[in-house]
Amino acid sequence: MAFLRSFGIGASVARTTLAWVRNDQNAPSLRRLNFAGREVTLAGGPALAAGATVGAAFGARSARLKAAAVTAGAVSGAVGFYDDIVGNRPEQKAAKGFAGHLGALREGRVTSGLLKIAGVGAAGLVASALVGSDRPSRFGRGVDVLLGAGVIAGTANLLNLLDLRPGRAIKAGAILGAPLAVGRNASMTAGTLGASAALLPADLDEEIMLGDAGANALGALLGLAFTARAGTGARVAALAALASLTAASEKVSFTKVIQDTPWLRYVDELGRRPNKA
């Protein structure tokens, strides 16, 4: 019952926020052209961030986990939304990837992307510290907090890297979230998945775009749900996998890999609006 309540709250808040943002007087400034040249709205980002955060916080089993969910989801969504808006400016677009943002910093420019990276990292650290650790030594607990922060921020970044086609980030989030929706802290994951499910049809139909706000919040909350139930070894393994995928993204196009792998291409295109040849 708690699982269904969290799922429903996440979905309801996401839909309500989407309608509110779409009807706001500043809504026209959120219009963007997607990969296919169709006009979509970035309203999906704050809608997903709000729904997933509220749903996850409602489903969390303790006050510390609730605070961790609010921190991870709200901060990641907020700095992501800032990058969605400011990062569209010509002087910001020149900096690509982590190396590009660091290069701009060496030139004395602080990019919106760098602020996003710092914000997501800080949110991950605070959220991981709120989750805590059962290890007896102070050093061990500190290591667990750092590992958890890496997992939370790394998952946020991974979902952001995948958000290049309609529905892709939400589908990836559903795959990552499925095993977390069973057992301890399942209700926290349910709120996140509920918000995602509510927005998936509009995402697939190319009405909305998640942007950094939605993808970062979704990934951060899933990373938090994993951290809240994982020990040191599992956190190390997850962080290693996330670091490998992030490093690979600098050399290999995930979109090309998906297109060249039949079963991945099938899942990726499932439910998506067909493109004109």
Rank of each mutant, 00 (worst) to 15 (best):
E107F: 12
G108W: 09
G108V: 09
T111K: 03
S112R: 07
L114K: 03
K116D: 03
K116P: 07
K116T: 03
K116I: 01
I117E: 02
G121C: 01
A123R: 10
A123M: 10
A123I: 09
L125C: 02
L125P: 02
A127G: 12
S128N: 13
S128F: 12
A129N: 03
S133C: 12
S133W: 14
S137F: 08
R138I: 13
F139Y: 14
R141L: 01
D144F: 07
D144M: 07
D144L: 07
V145I: 14
L146Q: 03
G148I: 11
G150L: 06
G150W: 08
A153W: 06
T155F: 08
A156P: 03
N157I: 00
N157K: 13
L158M: 15
L159V: 09
L161M: 14
L162E: 01
L164I: 15
R168L: 13
A169M: 00
I170P: 01
K171G: 10
K171P: 10
K171N: 11
A172Q: 06
I175P: 08
P179V: 07
A181I: 04
V182P: 00
R184Q: 14
R184S: 14
N185K: 00
A186D: 05
A186L: 02
A186I: 12
M188L: 15
G191D: 01
L193Q: 07
A198I: 01
L199I: 09
L200K: 02
L200M: 10
P201W: 05
D203L: 09
D205N: 14
E206D: 02
E206T: 06
E206R: 14
E207W: 08
E207A: 11
I208F: 12
I208D: 08
G211Q: 07
D212G: 06
D212Y: 00
A213R: 01
A215Q: 06
N216A: 04
N216P: 04
G219K: 09
A220I: 01
L222V: 05
L222D: 02
G223M: 14
L224H: 12
A225S: 15
A225T: 13
T227C: 10
L239Y: 07
A240D: 11
L242W: 08
L242V: 05
S244R: 14
S244H: 12
S244N: 07
L245S: 10
A247E: 10
A247N: 06
A247L: 15
